[in-house]
Design a protein around this nucleic acid. Structure first.
Lengths: 206, 206, 206, 206
DNA sequence: TATGAATGAGCCTTCATTCAT
DNA sequence: TATGAATGAAGGCTCATTCAT
């Protein structure tokens, strides 16, 4: 029973993994379905049993990978809060999460490259807002929970998030992958200060 | 003599223009050399007399277009300074230039899209640093001149520039093209404040 | 026992029906076995338990459908003869049958199209001559019976039948499906007169 | 100059010939573009320089082949009329042409098969009515000229032509290719008599 | 220099057929 | 018997690149 099912899932994962590796190495456009199939040790026709085309595969990959990342980051934050017992402020939480993400992506530059090139704000919003399935988490909910736990209130929280994410995303890309204009560790202090500045700017001061 | 030369340059420009129009409309990957040649009214073989391949063409195009933009912006700033006679502070100059660029790109979303998708910090640096040819200007020089004219001094001016550019680039892309998470005009105040914050952060206070 | 048997026959018929619908709608070549199986609610592999390939299925379908049609026509003729009690002449019988067939096919253009495209004289002869199975009738026998009941005798009756059938088949195809060069009702008088002429020509006049 | 042009035309003809041979041998559906190219000694891509797809090629082939045939037949008739000096009647002319066509097609059964399977009345009408180009003749005009030269007048001449053509086409197909229900020569007397009967039927008798 | 016909590798996709379950 | 995942050959088509003119 479950045997056939399990085999199928295993094959699906093999294809996903092969595709991910190729996409990150050579880019989506330059990866052919032949290559993916071959690397997965699967006939070309088999690919089409699992995906309608390359774009569906790509979308599922982005969705899956970025969800995983955010889930880990959120879990790490929870863990720290729970262990230390100290109440963190909003900007510290934010920085913690971003630092976590940067560290993860620094260790996996290919993932960074893949996400940077394929993850637009639109896809991001959809991915992180959509119904929570088995694996995915609703990041938006976490974000708003973080906001309400705070005493301070914020103007336009969505714009605030947007600016932080765009800033982080684009600066990391260059710093991690090309050490330009400086390595990521050198950049971090400036980056984090800028993030705090952005947050401060959106604070509603009575 | 000059005639043949002029004809050649004219043909080159025709190819560049055709390619730019197609690249912005359909993307680089989905534009074939056949299309470019046809639109330029040139035989397919002729293309190869001017460019080694599509990528060389693309790079020259980015180079050319972004130089033109910055040149305009710098000229506009000069003009304002000259006319008003008032001495502007560094951050105001920066904001002026960025505002100018954003306005230009808002009117030409295809150009924005093209630049965003193909302009990495690496290409940018190269484009804005390289020797001044007929048409290009050395933006870096302008930037450093702006810095030295100031009384204040700055830490890591290159990182500062980098962060500003990355922030502007990525936020504009989404705001102008998709109005996400808000229209560009609504976003501007936050964006400009953040830029000022970045600059402030890099100021060396004795 | 009988139950399993019945189930099997039912499955067979489901496949036949699905195939017929698809063949008539899209043509034989453009119908895949996947489609047929899916429409029949049967696994793809199951198809091969009933048919060697698509062509065998197609032949059985033609056979079955045309037999059914002729059977109906013959029955209708019998009925009229029985009811009216009048002795009909050969050519009137022929016209009656053909008129019946035309009317049926006019109401079912897809069937007409399917038969026209796939029914050659060879298949036709085989279908109408072969041993009477459960459903099929021996039309040839009926034809010869019709001939012997007549006082008049005919030269080359097979050629006569052939010419009538070919004439009717090809003219109906265009007239019913495309109203070209005229609608079937407008065509009928000419067609029937021609049939009578053909028959007359084959009469042996002492 | 003309050299390249001539070469191109030669290549076009090579492709047409190869395709015709394969189409007649195996049918249009079962002939692939790879096969055509290979047989023509041409790269696959070259095919697409001359035709958009297989159907365009098929249509041009039908058009060309059937025009050629009718042209020959009409010329032969003209020749006979001119030489003999005798005035032929309409039905004799018709039979002459049909006899000529049948004889041609008997010698070239593959052509007969190809035309029969791909030439519908619609295509026929279009092919034989369309503007006379270099190679094609306006058969319709010939037909109507034949009619007006006659003393007798005819009812519904288009239906008359239609019935003759359909009868001839479908009976020849079986008789020539399969000798069913009899060889073409044996069939001819019956066929021609039927044609005369059809014509007679359309005569307007005062 | 300029042309554009020719190439052929390589892409995406479909589908009849097999076979382990 | 029945299934349906897997196969891989084959098809249609595109396109960067070459080369004789």
């Amino acid at each position: 029973m479950g045997k056939a099912e399990a085999k199928k899932i295993h094959k699906l994962n093999t294809i996903l993994d092969s595709a991910f590796e190729l996409f990150t190495k050579q880019g989506v456009e330059k990866t052919s379905i032949s290559e993916i199939s071959e690397k997965a040790g699967v006939a070309k026709g088999t690919f089409y049993l699992y995906f309608r085309d390359k774009h569906e595969l790509r979308d599922r990959l982005i969705y899956h990978q970025s969800s995983k990342l955010f889930k880990e980051a959120a879990a790490a934050l929870d863990n720290v809060v729970a262990c230390s017992g100290v109440k963190m402020k909003f900007d510290d939480k934010m920085i913690f999460i971003i630092d976590y993400l940067i560290n993860q992506l620094s260790q996996n530059p290919l993932l960074l490259s893949f996400i940077s090139k394929n993850l637009s704000w639109g896809v991001f919003k959809k991915a992180l807002t959509s119904k929570t399935t088995d694996d995915e988490i609703d990041f938006k909910q976490i974000y708003y929970k973080m906001l309400t736990e705070e005493d301070t209130k914020f103007n336009e929280p969505e714009i605030m998030l947007f600016m932080i994410i765009e800033l982080v995303g684009s600066t990391c890309y260059s710093a991690v992958l090309y050490n330009e204009p400086a390595g990521i560790e050198e950049l971090k202090p400036y980056l984090f200060n800028t993030i705090r500045a952005i947050i401060r700017e959106h604070e509603i001061t009575e």
